[in-house]
Design a protein around this nucleic acid. Structure first.
Length: 463
RNA sequence: GGUCCCAUCGUCUAACGGUUAGGACAGAUGGUUUUCAAUCAUCUAAUCGGGGUUCGAUUCCCCGUGGGACCGCCA
């Protein structure tokens, strides 16, 4: 059996990482089974759908490495087909025209609310007898839902879920203006796209009972369904678009790597034994719906950071530099091309104390900026004795023909013995002079990452 | 409120009905180091409560409790 999965977001707001994870799971399942994965933009809400959101969705997916087959499907382009099916359901007796005005519906809802009973459309026009069809009202088309009995869906994640049919109302499939609603569109499109597995958020579970009835009325094959638990914010509530750290860009701008976030999202709600790190290939190979948990999970920034740190440290350094370069370009100040070589040379130790690209960028500041700014606290550490040592260092340093670690080591050791002191009292003033802070990379690394002239200039400046 | 779903360390999660309930992140302590980090070692920490079923329940059933989702002519 062919595996065809899809991700079907509506471009009415920025896609958050819960959506990205849903897309990832769909994609993984499709790829694992050598099937297809499609992206369908559900833009039938003309008022709220925006091009920018569509672009953001596409960008987010591509950033995290989820590639859809073919071009994206645009739901609104299939509107004729949706309307056609609505007509067919109407003529076959599976749907009917409802002439209730919006006011009338609202009135019923209010009434129910007052009485504290759940509202369900009263099926007034399902079987109209002796009712005059109002001339001034354009009808909507409603689907004739089952009234009695129970329905069960076999969910690949949740197991069997049953409900009483009486709680599913006769839902609208065609609006007053003739436009199709989600329930119809999604079903028709999934069918025409031959979707075999629908993996979506838990919030869609109830819709399955509606959509299944359309499939059955049309005598179409019903796809498999899997409803995955939602992702909650760190506070424990539903992830909303207003939450910080909810869109891909929120992570990109602090310097999270695509693989790290992909790995994080994969392990959020899914596990394979004790394994924590998954390459792209491994995740395709190992992913399955059985490993998906049933309970919602909370976002955990420290874990994202820790995964990101892992990927930063294990990544090819040239590629890491490219990421850094792009990151600086997009979110900070672009790296001056004259500095590129020293950054590349130094990335090996700059990345060592970094959890994010931003950390590496910050750690590189002493290379990027020619002006060293020393904090008042660190200036205090540069007493006369400390300065004296830096002067002596400088004298010898100037004489060096070639600068390398061995020679520097000799020089520093000689200063330590001469002053009967320790490494710290030699290294610290030098570090402050060179990078403006007593915290930073190893002193040899610093010196070697700067040009000889630059070292001389910076040390001279404090004296 | 109605319907449905869920429940293992703080967090993400493992555990054919039989384990000293495991791992990872976070936290704590110590070693190493050239500062900050990193690193290494060690430690703290969980089966929501109550009933069953069973020789035996984290696992199966019921009831509570807690959390969540849905209840649009949005998707």
């Amino acid at each position: 059996m062919a595996f065809i999965c899809r991700f079907a977001p509506s471009p009415t707001g920025p896609l958050h990482i819960g959506g990205v994870r849903t897309a990832l799971f769909n994609w993984l399942l499709a790829k694992k089974n050598k099937g297809k994965f499609y992206l369908r933009i559900e833009d039938t809400d003309k008022e709220r759908s925006k091009e920018e959101f569509k672009a953001q969705i596409i960008k987010s997916l591509s950033w995290v490495g989820v590639k859809y087959d073919d071009k994206e499907f645009i739901q609104s382009k299939n509107i004729n087909k949706h309307q056609e099916i609505a007509q067919e359901l109407l003529t076959k007796g599976f749907a009917y025209k409802c002439y209730c005005s919006e006011d009338e519906i609202k009135e019923q809802k209010d009434k129910c609310k007052k009485q504290g009973i759940p509202y369900i459309y009263n099926r007034k026009w399902r079987d109209p007898k002796n009712i005059q069809i109002p001339k001034d009202i354009k009808p909507v088309i409603r689907f004739k839902s089952k009234i009695s009995g129970n329905s069960t869906i076999k969910d690949l994640v949740q197991g069997d879920v049953s409900i009483s049919n009486s709680i599913i109302e006769d839902f609208v499939i065609l609006r007053q203006d003739g436009s199709p609603t989600y329930q119809l569109c999604a079903t028709v499109d999934d069918h025409t796209m031959k979707v075999s597995h629908v993996i979506r958020g838990d919030d869609h579970k109830i819709n399955t009972f509606k959509q299944k009835q359309i499939y059955e009325a049309m005598k179409w094959n019903v796809p498999e369904f899997a409803h995955i638990p939602l992702i909650h914010s760190e506070k424990g509530s539903k992830l909303s678009k207003r939450d910080k750290s909810s869109t891909i860009d929120d992570y990109v701008k602090i310097g999270i790597l695509p693989n790290a976030l992909r790995n994080y999202l994969l392990r959020l709600g899914w596990a394979h034994k004790d394994k924590e790190i998954f390459t792209l290939e491994e995740s395709i190979q190992l992913f399955d719906l059985k490993g998906v948990g049933k309970s919602p999970s909370k976002l955990d920034m420290s874990r994202i950071l820790s995964l990101n740190e892992h990927y930063i440290k294990n990544m090819d350094e040239k590629i890491l530099f490219d990421f850094l370069k792009k990151y600086a370009q997009n979110y900070k100040k672009a790296i001056n091309s004259s500095k590129e070589d020293s950054i590349i040379k130094s990335i090996n130790f700059l990345k060592n104390k970094a959890k994010t690209l931003n950390d590496i960028y910050q750690n590189s500041q002493y290379i990027l900026n020619d002006e060293v700014k020393i904090s008042p606290e660190d200036i205090k550490l540069l007493d006369t004795n400390a300065k004296k040592i830096t002067v002596e260092f400088l004298e010898e340093f100037k004489k060096m023909k070639a600068v390398n670690k061995e020679i520097l080591e000799k020089l520093i050791n000689s200063l330590i013995t001469k002053h009967k002191t320790n490494f710290k009292s030699v290294g610290q003033p030098l570090r402050i002079a060179l990078i403006g802070s007593r915290f930073g990379p190893g002193i040899y690394n610093i010196i070697l990452s700067l040009t000889k002239d630059e070292v001389i200039k910076r040390i001279s400046k404090i004296n």
